[in-house]
Amino acid sequence: MDSEQLQRLVTVTMPFGKHQGTVIADLPGNYLNWFAREGFPKTDIGRLLALMHEIDHNGLSDLLKPLRPGAGPRR
């Protein structure tokens, strides 16, 4: 996992489905769990969804807050 991929989680939006237009980092856990059960797409979006699932599943979503656009400088 690299910082570029983490940054993409807070900027890239879901391109299809029920949550189309939602930033990947804002997708609900149950939606990410569904992909984990059914299989992530074999695409770049699928890799981001899998990464977000791992972050969400392990309770680490707050680590993305400083990366969000407009979050301001770290102190």
Rank of each mutant, 00 (worst) to 15 (best):
D2K: 13
L27G: 08
W34M: 04
D44L: 02
E38H: 09
T11D: 06
R68C: 08
F40Q: 09
W34T: 09
A71R: 01
I55W: 01
H57L: 12
Q7V: 07
E54H: 09
I24L: 05
P41N: 08
R8M: 13
L67T: 11
R47D: 15
H53C: 05
G59K: 01
I24H: 00
T13F: 00
I55C: 07
D62A: 06
G29T: 07
Q20W: 00
R47C: 06
T13G: 10
F40N: 10
L6Y: 12
L60P: 00
L9M: 14
A25N: 06
N58H: 13
L60R: 11
K42T: 11
S3H: 12
F40A: 08
I24M: 06
R37I: 00
R8G: 00
Q5E: 14
T13R: 15
R47S: 15
T43D: 11
K18T: 15
K42S: 09
R47W: 01
R37Q: 12
Q7H: 13
N30D: 11
I45M: 13
K18N: 12
L6G: 03
L63T: 03
M14H: 09
V10A: 02
N30W: 11
Q7C: 13
L6P: 03
I45S: 09
S61L: 12
E38L: 07
G17V: 02
P69K: 10
A50N: 13
W34F: 00
A50D: 11
P15Q: 10
Q5W: 01
R68V: 11
G72L: 13
T11W: 01
W34C: 00
H53E: 09
G70N: 06
R68A: 07
L9H: 04
P66Q: 02
D26L: 10
R47P: 04
D2V: 03
V10H: 02
T13S: 14
S61Y: 02
L9A: 04
I45G: 05
H57K: 15
Q5D: 12
F16S: 14
G70Y: 03
M1Q: 08
A36G: 04
A25D: 11
R37E: 14
M14P: 04
D62V: 03
S61N: 05
N33G: 08
R68M: 08
A50P: 00
D26G: 07
D26F: 04
D44T: 02
L27Q: 06
G39F: 02
L27I: 14
G17M: 07
P15N: 10
T13D: 11
L49F: 04
M1T: 05
M1S: 11
L67R: 13
K65T: 13
G39H: 05
L60H: 07
L51V: 11
H57Y: 14
N33R: 13
E4W: 00
F16W: 04
T13K: 14
L48E: 14
M1V: 10
G29M: 12
G46L: 06
G72V: 07
N30M: 06
L6E: 02
L48I: 10
G39L: 08
Y31S: 07
G46K: 04
P73F: 08
N30F: 13
G21I: 12
M1C: 08
F35P: 00
R75K: 10
E54W: 08
K65F: 01
H19M: 05
P28D: 02
H57P: 00
L63E: 10
E54A: 14
A25P: 07
